[in-house]
Write a protein that binds this DNA or RNA. Structure first.
Lengths: 101, 101
DNA sequence: CTTGTAATTAGGTGATTGCCTAATTAGGAT
DNA sequence: ATCCTAATTAGGCAATCACCTAATTACAAG
């Protein structure tokens, strides 16, 4: 979960994730969408892959990245429980689990 | 949203937020819950306040911190839209679920 | 084998983070 | 005023981050 939040704490990486929402993309196409050097984008993709938010698949000479939402589930649960805490002032629910992603 | 994800990208800050889920707490009680110097915790609280996730309210000589979930709503929306993109992503084991009640 | 293209790794730099101790501010009590 | 406690700010240090350019790997085609 740590790596997931960390990965999403950067606008470029959130943007990449949003792009992949519409379907898988090659590394080059992703890099071309940003006004920064390709290796920088590669770094962002590596961060997303580390977090488990994307999977990379080699396809000939290019690499196809696709979204993997399952890594985000823990993060969603965390936030949903937060929201639940707003509805009721004090609710003894499941204890907060601290797991590393 | 940036600051929210950034703030939640640290286990101590997530833990603080989880603690505040049960109700407001004083700075000292929060600091006492961690095995680190008080000023370090103050820094984490400042990060959470910057993100809008907590509000601080002076109460005599102490300071009471309280959860503010509204700052997390954008982050939740972002993640929920991600989950909605499951149809285009790698096929997870579970079928794509819509927003649950 | 040579060349071209796709993508990553290597390496460097300035900014930021996370932690600490020491100093400071703010109130309440003596 | 003086002192004590609560909390923050100041300042320093090692580690990480985000970005760049240059070098390298991987693969496909001529």
């Amino acid at each position: 979960m740590n790596l997931v939040f960390k990965a999403l704490a950067h606008p470029v990486r959130r943007s990449i994730v949003a792009m992949l929402r519409k379907g898988p993309m090659g590394s080059g196409d992703i890099a071309a969408a940003f006004d920064m050097a390709w290796p920088t984008v590669t770094g962002h993709l590596a961060a997303l892959k580390d977090a488990g938010l994307v999977d990379a698949e080699k396809e000939g000479t290019s690499v196809r990245y696709r979204l993997n939402i399952s890594a985000a589930e823990e993060a969603v649960s965390f936030l949903m429980e937060l929201m639940g805490a707003g509805a009721h002032a004090a609710e003894p629910k499941a204890p907060p689990e601290e797991k590393q992603s």
